[in-house]
Every structure is written in structure tokens, then in C-alpha cells.
Design a binder for these strands. Structure first.
Lengths: 184, 184
DNA sequence: GCCGTAAATTAGATTGGTTCTAAATATAAA
DNA sequence: TTTATATTTAGAACCAATCTAATTTACGGC
């Protein structure tokens, strides 16, 4: 997959940079850089999805046999407390994590539970600064979620309603620009 | 408690309006307005906190003996799927709900897990419209969380670091304006 | 490079919030 | 009223997440 970036982008690969940042944050907090923690960070840095703690453990256990459930959960909690990753929540599932703290918008579908990453950040930096000045709250990460219905589910909903009246109608919706869709 | 509002505010009491909106959304979805559901909506409409599903059940069971755990959980899930309430997540606790879908910012402290509601909405409406046009995603609720450290915890962190060097120093931080603090 | 110690990991048991199940009940329509 | 459907109920079951105590490891100081 070619990293087709439009504007500001470093020459270093994104996962490598993410990885370094994770380790840096652990180190700065005075925590030890154990092989297990490094493996977990590497996994988080390379994933493009929003894995649950359980998923991280399962997939990591495959490549790193012997790694403990407790270690994975502890490390994820630690990273969360450091603000390195952000806990996501959407219906009826387990705890999922956002490993990308670059300000962006999560479009969370109420119907199919799909999460779409939307880049095209509004003035969040300005907001963070305003909040800091007015309340003393120091932000380390942003989580901006729009909860609603994705294009497909929106159409399905409309179709369901229309079907009750007469016949299902066809409609067009714009192509997905500026956003990257993910299966959770 | 007097509702000291600064700018735009209806003459109707906020809880009453919230309550009507909940019932309206249930009705619009073709669901029955049972006494249990109405009690749950009333509870959600009147709370100023971010209750967990468990809390809702426990506190409701006190005033409505005989109400079932399953009913409370089912209704909360239904309201969430309708976008009437929004699931919040922050470390190591159970699922909490945001009952106020009026666009605002949740300041979530990584250290003490306190949630501060901050009103002073950034251009979220414009963002929602842009998202709809570009991706076809139809928003029904916004969740804007800033994860970080509240003023108190920030000072404590600084003190901890300073204490390791010499003596704890005193510092001042601005009063909390434009925001309402809550104990979860 | 080796030691000592506090930190981290491990395997497994445990917990407890949430969901599931089947039966009973209530609701709205015919 | 009768009927069909939706909802509620009580309690059992689930399972992700946490906890425990013992073992192992990382890393600054010697």
C-alpha cells in the first residue's frame, strides 16, 4: 500500500515513527523497555485498524508464544494512561483502541459499527489551547467522534422505509474522499 | 440548583426537554413507550452526571423496585443505537453514557478519571456538514473528547517531579470558566 | 562485566458487568 | 374480547478484564 499523502509528511515511514514515539513515551515515564512491551508497541504501530485489547493479545500470542494476557492488558492500560493510545467505545463490543493520535475524526456507524477515519481536521489545536488557558486542562490527545449512519446504512434505512410504502428507490451518494474506511 | 445559563437557552427546563426528546426518538423508531422505558428516560434526562449502565440500574431499582437489569441494559442499548445517548469510554471503568448530545467537549483526566464538561463549541456543525457532503456519513451525535490532565492533576504531577529535585513549589492556574466539573 | 533490587512477566484463578434465555406479562390492533 | 407481537422479568451464563503470588528480568551502581 503506497502512502499517498497530500500535504505534510515526513520521509520516515509512519509505523516506524509511531513505534519510536511509543517507546519514547514509555521511557520518559521511567518504564522499562522490555521485549514484550516493544512487541506490543510494534504491533500497535503497524496496525491500521482499531484493535481491541483481546485482539492485540490473540494476534500477538501467535507470533510471540508465551506472552501473557496480563502483560498485554497492563501495557495497553499504561499506554492509555500516558495518552499514547486512546480508548474508543462503540456499541456492544469490547474495548477498542485508537493507535493514531494524529488529530482526525472517527465516523462511527450506529448500524454496522464500522469506523471510518476522516482526515480534514478542524481547528482542534486552537480549541486545546483555549481549554488550557480557561480551565488549566492539559490535553495530550484528541478524540473526535461523529456518531451516526454511514452512507451504506443510511441508504438501507431509507430503503427499508420506502419498501414499506411502495418500491425501493435508487439513490447516489458521493464517493468517499479525504477518508479511509476500515473494518473496525 | 439554578440553571445559570449565559447565552442561548429555552424557557422550558432542560431536563423536561431532554425527556421529551428521548420519548420522541423511541416513538419515531416504532418502539413502545412502556412505564419502564419512561422511567429510564426520566432518569437520564435528570442526571447531570455520566452514569454507567450499572449505576442507572442500581439507582433506578431503588425507586422502581422490580425493574429488571435486562430492561435497563436493553433500553440503554436501544437509546445508544438511536443516537439519543452516547457511549463514553475512559480507563478501567464500566461503560458510561453521555446523556447530553448538545455539542460540547468532554475533558477526560487520565489521572483521576474526572470528566469536565466544557461548553464553548468549536465549529462542529460545519464539520458535520462537510463530512456528510464528502462521505455521505449522516451524523446524529458528536463526541469530542480531550484526553489529558486536569488542572489539579497537572499540578500534582509537577509537584511530584519537583519533590524529587528539591521542594514542592506553589503555582497558580486559572479559575474554571465556561465549564462544569462533575464527579464522573 | 557482575550484583542487587525494584520492576515486570507469567499462568491461572477470579471477578463482575453485561448478555442471554425462556417464561410471563403487557401493549396495540382487529 | 381476542389475537399477535413486543416487552419485561429473574436468574443463569458468559467472558473480557483484573488480580494473585511466584518467577524472571532489566538496568543503574559497584
Amino acid at each position: 500500500m503506497t502512502t499517498t499523502s497530500d500535504s505534510t509528511k515526513k520521509t520516515t515511514s509512519a509505523p516506524a515513527e509511531k513505534y519510536r514515539r511509543y517507546l519514547q513515551m514509555l521511557k520518559k515515564a521511567g518504564l522499562r523497555l522490555t521485549p514484550q512491551r516493544m512487541a506490543i508497541c510494534a504491533y500497535l504501530a503497524h496496525t491500521e485498524r482499531h484493535p481491541s485489547a483481546y485482539q492485540v493479545y490473540e494476534e500477538l500470542a501467535a507470533t510471540h508464544p508465551g506472552i501473557s494476557r496480563a502483560t498485554v492488558y497492563n501495557t495497553l492500560n499504561t499506554l492509555r494512561e500516558l495518552g499514547a493510545i486512546v480508548e474508543l467505545s462503540f456499541g456492544s463490543d469490547h474495548t477498542h483502541y485508537e493507535t493514531n493520535t494524529q488529530p482526525h475524526v472517527n465516523l462511527i456507524c450506529l448500524r454496522c459499527h464500522k469506523i471510518i477515519d476522516y482526515y480534514g481536521d478542524p481547528g482542534v489545536d486552537a480549541l486545546m489551547e483555549r481549554v488550557r488557558q480557561e480551565t488549566g486542562f492539559q490535553s495530550v490527545a484528541v478524540k473526535l467522534d461523529l456518531v451516526g449512519f454511514c452512507a451504506e446504512c443510511r441508504l438501507q434505512r431509507l430503503d427499508e422505509i420506502r419498501a414499506m410504502l411502495k418500491t425501493a428507490a435508487q439513490d447516489k451518494f458521493p464517493q468517499t474522499r479525504n477518508s479511509k474506511e476500515e473494518i473496525v
